[in-house]
């Protein structure tokens, strides 16, 4: 690691005041939470912050529900959230996406604030040598003509095809949360979650709309009762502790076997946490069937662009979407209607 200064201020106000401007491509200061991405990238010299502002003394570690609204502090760990009843019972997709990510050791310290901002696993970004517009703006993209098996097929640009690596964000996005942040100059700010990440476009180094000193303090959202019928299906190279090749978060509002409303998020295939809104529209009013589920998968990957080694993600992703829909429809959910004749079926 390159030398850096370390500070651990005692309040959110102090933290945003003293943090060194973060700048582009990770070369400025940085907030430090669990550090499981940041310290890793610092060891690789992919990011070289001159200073770290540790958020460990800021609290922000509670999950609470007030008047039907859930507020999750950004310092809640992945492990804590994955086992919290609000997630486990009221929105299993959120719990699934957390426990199916990383390893227990990482989840015990990685936080939800940091997890949503997890950097890509693109090998050319991480090697610190290859041309990479995300790490070294203007240098080009070695991935597009390189070994791109793990990279994205949705939301790409001619400058970057780096996959958004996280899982939790692909499930959280289903519930239209608000991201609560703080800056020194402007105080608290609320950002619709789906606006937080930005497509690579012409400037892959800019991954979010967060300002230079902006700290995520938490997430706020409401869970409809039918979020109990939600899950996260993750296809990967090994059964555990691997990044998604393709994943799907699904929540279904069922009336018998008719879909009143559906939410669909995709992971492992896109450059940002991905909400498949056209596929959601298609599902409205449809009867649950294998044919409907597969057609939804096709719609979700409309416009996807495969490259030399990753085109398999398009048919794989369609199947993962279909499986997620069919599995969600079969869930035995207390208090929510299941598929006719199958509501007693175990999942």
């Amino acid at each position: 690691m390159k030398p850096f200064r370390y500070q651990a201020p005692g309040s959110v106000d102090a933290a945003v005041e003293v943090v060194e401007p973060m700048g582009v491509a990770g070369q400025g200061g940085a907030f430090l939470a669990g550090g499981t991405t940041l310290i890793d990238l610092m060891k690789l010299h992919v990011v070289t912050p001159p200073s770290l502002t540790d958020v460990k003394r800021l609290g922000l570690d509670q999950i609470e529900e007030t008047d039907g609204e859930i507020r999750v502090g950004s310092r809640v760990t992945m492990a804590e959230a994955s086992e919290h009843p609000l997630f486990l019972e009221r929105a299993p997709a959120l719990s699934d996406a957390l426990w199916k990510a990383a390893s227990p050791q990482l989840r015990n310290i990685a936080t939800l604030g940091g997890n949503v901002l997890q950097r890509t696993r693109c090998p050319y970004f991480r090697d610190n040598v290859s041309p990479c517009n995300k790490r070294d703006p203007g240098s080009g993209c070695a991935a597009i003509g390189g070994i791109n098996r793990l990279l994205a097929v949705l939301g790409t640009s001619e400058n970057c095809i780096a996959t958004y690596a996280g899982d939790f964000a692909n499930a959280l996005i289903l519930f239209d949360p608000v991201v609560e942040t703080r800056t020194a100059a402007d105080g608290p700010r609320q950002i619709p979650f789906s606006d937080l990440h930005v497509l690579p476009g012409d400037n892959p180094a800019k991954e979010t709309i967060l300002g230079d000193d902006e700290l995520i303090t938490g997430y706020r959202f409401k869970l409809p009762d039918w979020a109990r019928r939600s899950l996260y299906v993750k296809a990967r190279d090994r059964e555990s502790y691997a990044f998604a090749l393709a994943s799907a978060a699904v929540a279904l509002d069922l009336d018998g076997d008719t879909i009143r409303e559906a939410r669909l998020g995709l992971g492992g295939v896109a450059t940002v946490p991905w909400r498949a809104r056209e596929a959601e529209e298609f599902l409205k009013g449809k009867t649950v069937s294998e044919e409907t589920a597969l057609e939804t998968g096709r719609i979700a990957f409309d416009g996807a662009q495969g490259y030399e080694h990753n085109a398999f993600k398009i048919p794989l992703g369609r199947q993962v979407v279909a499986k997620a829909i069919l599995d969600a429809a079969k869930m035995d959910v207390a208090g929510a209607a299941g598929m006719t004749g199958q509501s007693g079926g175990a999942n």
Partner: peptide
């Protein structure tokens, strides 16, 4: 184990 919880010590700064 940090405070009874397992973590990877290679990614944990002593300062943290």
């Amino acid at each position: 184990l940090m405070n009874g919880t397992r973590v990877n010590s290679c990614l944990l700064l002593a300062a943290m």
